[in-house]
C-alpha cells in the first residue's frame, strides 16, 4: 500500500467533480443544480489546497481556495435571488420547464 500522497487527493477531487457535473445535468430543481455547482467548486478547492501542500507554491494555493469560498458565498446569494425571481416569473423552479432560450 503506497503512502497517501497528492494523487489520492486528486482522485477524490475528480470523483467529486464528476458527481457535481452529474448533479447539475440531471436534477430538475434549480436548487439541486446549485448544490451540484457547490460540489464542483469544492472539488477545485481540494485541488488548490493539495497542490499548495505538495507543490512548491507557498501559501498561494490556500489563499486561492479561500477566495473561491468567498466567491461561492456571493454566488449562492445571487443564485438564490435569481431562483426566487424565476419562481415569480414562471411559477416553477424546475429548470427543464424553463426553455425560453429556445426561441
Amino acid at each position: 500500500m503506497i503512502h497517501i500522497g497528492l494523487i489520492h487527493y486528486l482522485i477524490v477531487s475528480s470523483i467529486l467533480f464528476c458527481l457535481g457535473i452529474f448533479g447539475v445535468i440531471t436534477r430538475k430543481n434549480a436548487i439541486m443544480v446549485l448544490m451540484g455547482i457547490e460540489l464542483i467548486l469544492n472539488s477545485a478547492n481540494i485541488n488548490f489546497v493539495a497542490f499548495a501542500r505538495y507543490g512548491n507554491f507557498g501559501n498561494s494555493g490556500q489563499l486561492t481556495a479561500l477566495f473561491v469560498i468567498i466567491l461561492a458565498a456571493a454566488e449562492a446569494a445571487i443564485a438564490m435571488a435569481i431562483v426566487l425571481n424565476i419562481y415569480k416569473m414562471f411559477s416553477t423552479i424546475n429548470v427543464d420547464e424553463i426553455d425560453t432560450l429556445k426561441d
Binding site: 477524490v12 478547492n45 489546497v49 493539495a50 499548495a52 501542500r53 481556495a65 479561500l66 469560498i69 461561492a72
Partner: peptide, 19 residues
Amino acid sequence: GLYVLLSADFIAVVQLVVY
C-alpha cells in the same frame, strides 16, 4: 476534514463557517 489533513487548518475552519 481533508483540508485539515492537508495542514490547511484555516481553510478548514472557513469551510465550516462559510459553507
